[in-house]
Computed example of a mutant assay.
Amino acid sequence: MKQWSVAQVQQAVQEGTCSEEDIQEWEKDPRAGVRKACAAWRKREARAALQLEQWQEMCAVENSFARNGFQAVGGVDEVGRGPLAGPVTAACVILPDNFYLPGLTDSKQLSDARRREFAGILYENALVGIGSCSAQEIDELNIYQASRQAMVRAVQNLPEKPDALLVDAMNLPLDLPQESLIKGDARSVSIAAASVCAKVHRDDEMKQFDAEWPDYGFAAHAGYGTKQHLEALETHGVLSIHRKSFTPVKNCL
């Protein structure tokens, strides 16, 4: 049998060109470098298996809709209910058949870099609609109704009309079959995809506001009521993008 050098084993493991049979054989090798490479392969395979299992679990609701004839199922989620400034933003995402994006989950569980990586993949492969309600609309409607309206706009802004909807903890006034899921961004791949797209879109908008009003630190806190933001409100005053119906802002008027 071919004698592999430690470097060759490490390269095969890193590039994924080895098989289970190779690993089983190499695990008998007394060299520490080979054993370490095999352990890394086992760990990676276990993580991949777990991600696949989680993905399959999060596809359960979509699969149920598909069995009932609904092919274009849109997942809907929103971000930005809590901030003192900026819009509440929603996304609706229809994933293609046989789509798989390991690690996709609730956007709050992902790093900014991973969210942006995933958003790029989603925009390339899925149908995405974005909707939002401004701070002025939030003040007029209240945050619950504004969040709902942002979700409706996201659905309406899809390139194609969905057959059905999966919505994170909300019922929408749309003539479409839909199911509301509590903590849906952790239970449905479509809703998780929507949470990622909505989060990235809103963060980018807050960075634009940061460029316009650099004293407030919007790029850092995205409009949430951090110490930096509250101090900026006290020092520099209320802006047009602030939610004047929210108490910390109202107190500065």
Rank of each mutant, 00 (worst) to 15 (best):
P30E: 13
K2M: 10
R114L: 15
P248I: 03
C92E: 06
S111F: 11
L104K: 02
L165D: 04
P102Q: 10
M170E: 15
W41E: 08
R187F: 03
L181W: 01
P87V: 07
N63G: 12
D163E: 13
V167C: 14
L174W: 09
E140H: 13
M1F: 11
Q149T: 12
F99A: 08
T247W: 08
W55H: 13
V238N: 09
Q24C: 09
L110H: 05
L101S: 03
N68Y: 10
Q51W: 06
G120V: 03
L174N: 10
P177I: 12
L110T: 07
T226N: 10
H221I: 03
V13H: 02
E21N: 12
N171C: 11
L50S: 14
D168W: 01
A219V: 01
R148T: 10
L122I: 14
K199N: 10
K28I: 03
F118L: 12
L253C: 13
H221W: 09
R148C: 14
A49H: 08
A169H: 05
F70Q: 06
G217I: 00
V88M: 06
A211P: 03
V155E: 02
L174S: 07
L101Q: 11
E137M: 09
V189Y: 00
Q56G: 03
L230P: 00
A154H: 05
R42L: 11
E117C: 04
P87Y: 07
L233Q: 02
A232I: 02
Q8K: 09
K207L: 14
D112R: 10
G184K: 02
E20V: 09
P159R: 11
L181F: 03
Y123V: 06
M151G: 02
V79W: 00
K108G: 10
G184Q: 04
S111H: 12
R148N: 13
H236Q: 07
I121E: 13
N142V: 05
L52W: 08
D215V: 08
A48I: 03
L110N: 09
K207R: 13
E15R: 13
V6S: 01
L165C: 09
I143K: 00
E21I: 06
G74S: 15
Q156P: 00
L52Q: 14
L110S: 07
I121G: 00
A46P: 01
A119R: 00
Y100K: 10
A150N: 01
S107C: 11
R115P: 04
A39P: 04
V61Q: 09
D139Y: 02
Q149L: 14
L172Y: 11
K108N: 06
A49R: 15
L84Y: 03
S195N: 06
D29H: 07
R202Y: 09
V6A: 04
R187I: 01
F209I: 08
F209D: 02
H201E: 12
E137F: 07
A119P: 00
D185W: 01
A164E: 04
E231H: 08
A49K: 14
A72V: 05
S64H: 12
Q228D: 15
E62W: 02
D215C: 11
